[in-house]
Amino acid sequence: MANAHLIVFANEKGGSGKSTTAVHTAVALASAGRRVAALDLDHRQRTFGRYLDNRALTVKKTGVELPTPAHETLDPAKHDVAERIAHWRDQVDVIIVDTPGRDDAQARAAVERADTLVTPINDSFVDLDLIGQVDPETYRIRRPSFYAEIVWDARKVRAKADGGTVDWVVLRNRLQHIEARNMKRVAAALGELSKRVGFRVIPGLSERVIFRELFPKGLTLLDLKAIGQEAGLAHVAARQELREMISGLALPDWLKGKAPMLQTAGLDIAGAPVAA
């Protein structure tokens, strides 16, 4: 493929599990034999970048080969996101971008170029308010919020630039295992809003202790067998959630299929961070 598929994880509200889902998506695609580049646009927090740095160190310490995306963290004072995306476009199959949890010019530039835009939200009206305001009496959507307008503007920029479209996916993270009244109301409001502003809703990942435990070593749910850790029932359930999440993204078939790992000049599949 001459042009990589660009997946951008973006949400101006922190704590939605954005970086965790971005890492798991990147590693899942790398595990499927795809060449993946990961760009962290949050040069201050660096959660996405540090996760993959930790992964590279684990590979080095253990000698266990783990599929690892090439990755770099972009400082807006030194890098231009459009240029870095263009740099990777013909080197890899997919580019994963994790954006800061705030309004940011670099993040907007990434969204304007996205093929798939993923907005993770916690399953609550607090997070839903980012994209749509809810009536406190009826729990019906009153109007789209500012972030929906940002995405609308980005879609217009993309269409004008190359005629392309941005597939907007709202990812419901931290779903409760027991369906509650609030969960039903959030689902109904999201369904109504999705028809008005044009996004798809898919289930994401539940709140699990294992995600916090995996970060220091840069591991994902897909790595437990490789490192000799036996998966419990909770881990099996979490992996199933991950499979359903990747399936829900509805990525092009050529991205999801199993294929031999391809090596590209300048692309460090082994996991070392790529110099800017």
Rank of each mutant, 00 (worst) to 15 (best):
S19F: 02
F199Y: 10
V81A: 11
A32L: 14
K13M: 01
F48M: 11
G248Y: 06
Q240P: 11
L128K: 01
F125D: 06
F9T: 00
G271C: 06
A148D: 02
D153Y: 03
T73M: 04
H79I: 11
V59I: 14
K160Q: 09
G271W: 03
L267D: 15
A82D: 10
A82S: 08
R196F: 11
N122F: 15
G164N: 11
L267I: 15
Y51T: 10
I121R: 06
T73L: 11
L222Q: 09
I227P: 04
H71F: 14
V134E: 10
L29N: 08
L267F: 15
R200M: 01
L205P: 12
T138P: 02
A2N: 02
R34A: 08
H79V: 09
V64G: 04
P273F: 03
R102S: 11
H5F: 13
A114V: 10
A265N: 08
N122I: 05
A272N: 14
Q176T: 06
T264N: 09
R181N: 09
L6W: 00
A180G: 06
L222E: 07
P252S: 04
I178C: 03
P216K: 03
A276R: 00
D253Y: 07
R196P: 03
V118P: 01
T99M: 00
R142W: 05
R142F: 01
L29V: 12
I227C: 05
I95V: 12
T47C: 09
I96G: 02
L205N: 07
A259N: 05
A32C: 12
E213G: 02
V64W: 13
G15W: 05
D93S: 13
A226R: 14
V23G: 01
T220P: 01
T138H: 05
G257L: 13
L171N: 02
A56K: 04
A148C: 02
W168E: 01
G49N: 06
D153F: 03
A250I: 04
V157S: 03
A226M: 00
A37V: 13
L262C: 13
V274M: 12
F9N: 00
T21L: 08
K60S: 07
L251K: 00
R46K: 15
G191Q: 12
E72M: 07
A234Y: 04
V166C: 07
R34T: 07
I7C: 05
L214C: 04
E12M: 15
K13H: 02
A159V: 06
D40Y: 14
F125Q: 03
L128F: 12
T264K: 06
Y147A: 02
K225A: 08
D98L: 15
Q45P: 09
V151L: 01
P136T: 10
E137P: 06
L171R: 10
A188Y: 11
A180I: 10
R142M: 14
K258V: 06
R55C: 14
L175S: 01
I96M: 09
L242Q: 02
R196A: 13
W254I: 12
N173T: 01
E112G: 11
T73R: 08
A238Y: 03
Q133V: 04
T264M: 13
G257Y: 07
P67Y: 04
H71R: 00
N54H: 09
S16Y: 00
L171F: 08
I96F: 05
A26I: 02
A22H: 09
R140C: 06
S19L: 06
K258P: 01
A189H: 11
V8G: 02
R181A: 09
N173I: 00
A107T: 07
L255C: 09
I246S: 15
A238V: 12
